[in-house]
Every structure is written in C-alpha cells, then in structure tokens.
C-alpha cells in the first residue's frame, strides 16, 4: 500500500510547527499505524533527516502513551482502538493521512507529535486514590461488593489516561477522564469515605489546569479507546453537586 502523509513537525515547545508532506510505499495491511511510522522514520534516518518524534511504549493499547490525531480523529478512524492498535488495513491504498498531536491548551507540545499530559497526573494527585497506607487494610473478603457495582467500577477503571477525550472535545474538556476515576471510586465501598473531597478537589484541579467545560457534545465518548461512558460524567456531576451541598 502507498500513502501520502501530512505530519505535524515542530522542533520544540517554542518553535512554530507546520504540516510536512511525506509519501510512503510498500506498506503491508497487517502493519500497525506506529509500525508504518517506524518505516517512515527509518527512511528519514537513513537520509540523514530528523525522524518524527512520537510517544509510544506498550504497543498493546494499554499504557496510554501513544497519542496521534489522525485525519481529524483522536487515535484515528477505528472505533475503540488506540493509535498503536490501529492497523493499516483500516485505510485505503493511496489515502492521504493527516497526523497531528493531541491538541489542547493543557497539553503543550514538546516536539512533533509529543505532548505534555502531566496535567492528568496532577488531577489524580488531588484525589484519584483511596487514602489507605500500606498495611492498614483488613481482609479483602470482609467487605463484599455487589458484582454489578464491581463490574461498573471496572468499566470506569479501564481508562488508560491517554487524553483522546480531551483532544476530541471542541472545548478541550477533561470530564470523561476525571469522571472515570471519580466513578470507579464512587461505585466501590472503599471509595466512600473520601467521595466528597475527591469530587471537589479533582474537579477544582481540572479547572485550574485550564481544561474546558462540558457542553454535552459526546465526542469524548465516541473517540475513547476504552469505551468510557458519558454516564460517568453524569455521576461525577452528581458527586460534585452533593459534595458542594455538604461542604456549604
């Protein structure tokens, strides 16, 4: 297969970036998108040019590191897949493909397709946990958990922190990411004691990082590789509201 690529190149955080054209040939449909970029980079290095910088690590769709905005879609055209789990068979021979970083004010570009998503870590540090020190736990089976709730909590916990929801959202909102963690812990008894502070502190930090607000567009859910549901945002709003009333 052959492709025309238009790739965002930007030397560093301060430099101006632009789309640069590349063509690439002899691509096998079973290659992953990142393997296609590997081939392109290999060509660039051999020609003495600067390879395209991009984030990736596990290449199994679980670490959340890969993050390309491909032809107008976070993680590309395939539903429920990360960039590393996107295969070239999803494209047509001869396609022109745009490759850009995940864009958002809160995700500054470091180089080319690499962005700084540490805002997510800072949000988690404000409450994305249960405050239980090592050694303080009781026997794991002392507290049974309704299977239905456990399953829902697991659905929310599947979030990989990739930031596609932010990149997909016209407002650059991080509601889906934040609500996934708040939901997971709100659905489990272990998360109960801290639920109010958690909701307030995480949402405040989210605002402080400069993420936008939610206007119910739903692009986040559509692009989320882990199929995190919008209902989590509803649950977060309720958690936040209840917490605000209690804190009055």
């Amino acid at each position: 297969m052959k492709f025309n690529l238009k790739v965002w190149r930007q030397k560093n955080a301060k430099a101006e970036g632009k789309l640069v054209d590349y063509t690439i040939d002899n691509i096998i449909p079973d290659m992953s998108f990142l393997e296609m970029v590997d081939v392109l980079n290999d060509n660039l290095v051999r020609k003495g040019e600067d390879p395209i910088a991009f984030d990736h690590d596990c290449r199994e769709g679980i670490c959340g590191m890969c993050s390309m905005y491909i032809s107008g879609r976070a993680h590309g055209p395939q539903h429920a897949a990360t960039t590393c789990q996107l295969y070239m068979r999803s494209f047509k021979d001869g396609d022109t493909i745009y490759v850009e970083p995940f864009r958002a004010g809160a995700f500054p570009i470091i180089k080319d397709l690499v962005t700084d998503r540490s805002a997510f870590d800072r949000i988690i540090s404000k409450g994305g946990f249960v405050s239980v020190n090592t050694g303080q736990a009781q026997d794991a089976n002392n507290l049974p958990v309704d299977k239905a709730f456990a399953e829902k909590a697991m659905d929310a916990a599947a979030c990989i922190g990739c930031g596609a929801c932010v990149a997909a959202c016209p407002n650059s909102a991080a509601m889906l990411f934040v609500s996934a963690k708040i939901s997971q812990l709100a659905l489990l008894p272990q998360g109960g004691p801290e639920r109010n502070n958690r909701a307030i502190n995480m949402v405040n930090q989210m605002d402080e990082e400069g993420f936008g607000s939610c206007t119910n567009i739903g692009a986040c859910e559509a692009e989320c590789p882990k199929e995190i549901k919008l209902t989590n945002i509803a649950r977060m709003n309720r958690e936040y509201l209840v917490a605000s009333l209690i804190n009055e």
């Binding site: 946990f129 249960v130 239980v132 026997d139 794991a140 049974p144 299977k147 456990a150 489990l188 272990q190």
Partner: peptide, 22 residues
C-alpha cells in the same frame, strides 16, 4: 495475602462472584 488486602482497600476492582466475594 497482604497484597490482596491492600489492593482491594485501594479500590482495585478485582473480579467478584455473585455473592460479592473475590
């Protein structure tokens, strides 16, 4: 054995059976 206790207390959503136990 302590590991499982610790992780469950942290909110790790391990698989459960219909009685709600691990």
């Amino acid at each position: 054995r302590n590991i499982i206790d610790q992780c469950v207390a942290q909110g790790v959503p391990f698989a459960r059976d219909y009685g709600g136990l691990l």
